[in-house]
């Protein structure tokens, strides 16, 4: 039997032979290699694609309602080649970047503040919580009245949809900083402000980053909503126009493109997190 050494680590003195456990992938905590993981994910995507193809090729549904994959991808290729797709995507990405950055830039300091000080929590948290439950959709007409139908209205809708949620998520992250960490700062006679910047913020940062990643996903939804209702450009606008001309292939193509953008931005945020917070990687 391996004995724990002085540091509590187990060492194998006489190198006992590793017993092979029956390794079913359906056991709790069972690990997969990266190729296995990717393989399964790709397989599921391929399955869905095949099902889509089968349903349309068999003539079960009219192409007007659900065009086949070939037609949709063909349409996307055409739009990509004539530049339409890139123009629409560029505008939408610009809007989401600005809206999301404004929301994040405000939410991080405010979330940290109300997570750290009860006074600010009492002043701000109930209001934020109240507004958070108001339906974003209902703000669309109001924002059009306030700022018109240009880009600022898109920023505003994205901001309304993400900011309030972000504040609460970030507050939660900050509240989970162990009290002992703060006490440590106190026993070192660090001034409050330094405890906040040197201990609380770095300690909450991995969690904050994760909250931002999740809220970025929501931002895509609000952007498209805003573009669907009132816009003269962007991915959402193109979807509405396509509907007017019964171009179902464009609609579905753009929905798929939006899904891809969401997936890419999510994976990018995750990759950055893995680099930035390598120290926090759980040892399992």
């Amino acid at each position: 039997m391996p004995l724990p050494n002085r540091d509590g680590l187990t060492t194998s003195g006489a190198a006992p032979r590793r017993k092979r456990r029956p390794s079913s992938p359906f056991r709790l905590t069972a690990e997969l290699t990266t190729p296995q993981f990717v393989g399964i994910a790709v397989l599921v995507f391929a399955g869905l694609l095949a099902a889509w193809w089968a349903v349309t090729a068999s003539g079960l549904v009219a192409p007007l309602f659900l065009p086949g994959p070939g037609q949709v991808f063909g349409r996307l290729v055409t739009l990509a080649l004539n530049g339409q797709l890139w123009e629409d995507a560029g505008i939408s990405i610009y809007r989401i970047m600005v809206g999301f950055l404004i929301a994040t830039g405000l939410a991080v300091p405010i979330g940290v503040l109300i997570g750290s000080y009860r006074v600010w929590e009492a002043a701000i948290e109930p209001v934020v919580d109240f507004i958070r439950y108001m339906p974003v959709v209902a703000f669309v007409p109001l924002t059009i009245l306030w700022v018109g139908t240009e880009d600022p209205q898109k920023f505003l809708i994205i901001w309304i949809g993400t900011f309030f949620q972000q504040v609460l998520l970030i507050m939660d992250n900050v509240k989970r900083v162990p009290w002992d960490f703060i006490d440590l700062g106190r026993t070192l006679e660090m001034p409050e402000r330094k405890i906040l910047t040197r201990i609380v913020v770095p300690s909450a940062l991995p969690g904050i980053w994760d909250s931002l990643r999740i809220s970025l996903g929501w931002a895509w939804t609000w952007l498209v909503l805003a573009e669907l209702v009132a816009a003269t450009s962007g991915l959402g606008y193109r979807i509405v126009t396509a509907q007017r001309f019964f171009q179902t292939d464009t609609i579905i193509g753009y929905i798929l493109v939006l899904g891809c953008f969401g997936l890419i931005s999510d994976q990018a945020m995750k990759a950055v997190s893995r680099r930035l917070f390598r120290y926090a990687e759980a040892r399992r």
């Binding site: 960490f181 006490d183 770095p202 300690s203």
Partner: peptide, 8 residues
């Protein structure tokens, strides 16, 4: 009692 090492 908790280790309170700053993980970063």
């Amino acid at each position: 009692q908790s280790y309170t090492l700053l993980p970063w």
